[in-house]
Simulated scan of single mutants.
Amino acid sequence: MKINRMLTAAVLLGLLQSSAVFAMKPVTLVDQGSFAAGGKVITAPGKLNVNADPKAMGGQTLHGDHAYVFYQKPAKAHRNALVFLHGYGQSAKTWESTPDGRDGFQNIFLEKGYSTYLLDEPRRGRAGRSTVPVTISATPDDQLWFDNFRMGQWPEIYPNAAIPHTQEYLDQFFRTMTPDTGSFDLQLVADGVTAAFEKAGDGVLVTHSAGGGPGWLAAAQSPHVKGVIALESGTFPFPEGEVPPVEETTSPWPAKGMAVSREDFQKLLKIPMVVYFGDNITGGDKPLANWGFDNWRVRLNLARKWEQVMKKYGGDAQVILLPDKGIKGNTHFMMSDLNNGQVADEMERWMKEKGLAK
């Protein structure tokens, strides 16, 4: 792995900023804990008789397919909590300390006075008890994700990438990946998020990447979702009959919109929503040779089509590129980049604009 020693000014600025916020300021917590949200119970066929044979499965139950939620509530918290849902191959670790040990969004937003609820989605991480079997592979794919997450084009880190240009950072980052313990079920994850909001109460849902899909469904399901912040969502909801055609791409994962019922789409129109994209993303109609870039070109295009449809029906939706806000160098993991404090400030600016930060 080659480490680029010529850091850009933006990255150097991020390093200086990170040193100033490396340690979290003291925060008084009035409550913290964890719980399971949602889930299923299945029963094996047969009659329960564990006294005769404790290993006999007949009639025994399995509790699984729930989300795991860890929460913290600061003193004098804002009215709306923040509920965080990670993306593909990730867990609640996404929102905790960054790979190089700085404060992640969990601590940053606690310090800003928000109650935080961090989810491991069903069949992932600490919510790994699945009701369906799956074979977990051990596929070497670090370099694939490195390119897809716009950290660089292996083995080079992009000069403007706002991450520490070190082997240690990448080693810690790769170790945050965790497998599915059952098949990914969009509705199942949405139900887990909805159940989490039942305990959290009113709040803003913050999703990342593949968490965007179930996040949109949960927003339509739960009256407690008062706003949605989607960080580089992988898909977007369109009313039935209006899902745009899939765009040609050099990425192995084409950007596909998801159809929702007209009734659910009407519910989404009542919720303020913002989607943030990081750096090194351009729109346009022509596929790019760099598939890692092209993967996000088509998703940005899809997001803009979604924004137009939302606004056409009177929704409050906005797509924002962080470089347009003067926040430069962000990878797909903007919550752990060197300038994650600036990203959090921008998110709070939007929440204040929408009256969600009271």
Rank of each mutant, 00 (worst) to 15 (best):
N280I: 09
H224C: 03
V246I: 15
E232H: 05
P245K: 15
E242A: 13
F265M: 09
T249M: 10
P239V: 08
A259Y: 08
G227K: 04
I281A: 04
G234P: 01
N280D: 14
K286E: 11
G283R: 06
D294E: 08
S222H: 05
I271K: 10
K256F: 04
T282M: 13
K226N: 03
V275Q: 00
V225G: 01
V228W: 02
A220N: 03
V298W: 02
S222A: 11
P214Q: 06
D264G: 01
K270N: 07
W253P: 00
L288R: 15
W291R: 14
P245N: 14
D264W: 08
K256R: 14
D264K: 05
G257W: 03
F293W: 15
G212W: 01
A230H: 04
F236S: 00
I271E: 08
W253T: 09
P244V: 09
R262E: 14
V228A: 07
E263P: 11
V243G: 07
K256Y: 07
E232Q: 11
H224V: 12
N290M: 11
V260I: 13
A218V: 03
F277V: 07
S233D: 09
L231F: 03
P254E: 04
P254T: 07
L217Q: 11
K256M: 12
V246W: 10
F293I: 15
P287H: 04
L288G: 11
D279T: 08
A255E: 01
L288W: 12
G241K: 01
V246S: 13
T282P: 03
E242M: 13
M258I: 08
L268A: 02
S251E: 11
G283L: 01
M273D: 03
P245E: 15
E247F: 07
K286V: 11
L268I: 08
D285A: 13
A220F: 00
G278F: 01
S261R: 13
L217N: 01
V228S: 08
A218L: 03
P214K: 08
V228Q: 00
G292C: 00
S222Y: 02
W216N: 05
K226H: 01
F293C: 13
L288C: 12
A219N: 12
P252D: 09
M273F: 12
G284A: 14
P237W: 04
V298T: 05
K256A: 06
W291C: 11
V225D: 08
V246D: 06
P245Q: 13
V228G: 06
G213Y: 11
M258E: 11
T250N: 06
E232T: 09
E247Y: 10
Q266H: 12
V275S: 12
G292S: 00
G292P: 01
D294F: 02
V298G: 06
G213N: 11
G284Q: 11
P214I: 05
Q221P: 07
G278N: 07
A220T: 02
Y276S: 10
P223M: 10
W296T: 06
T250C: 09
L288F: 10
E232F: 06
S261D: 12
G212Q: 02
A219W: 00
Q266N: 12
P272C: 10
G215P: 00
W216Q: 06
L217T: 09
Q266K: 15
Y276D: 03
E247V: 09
R262C: 00
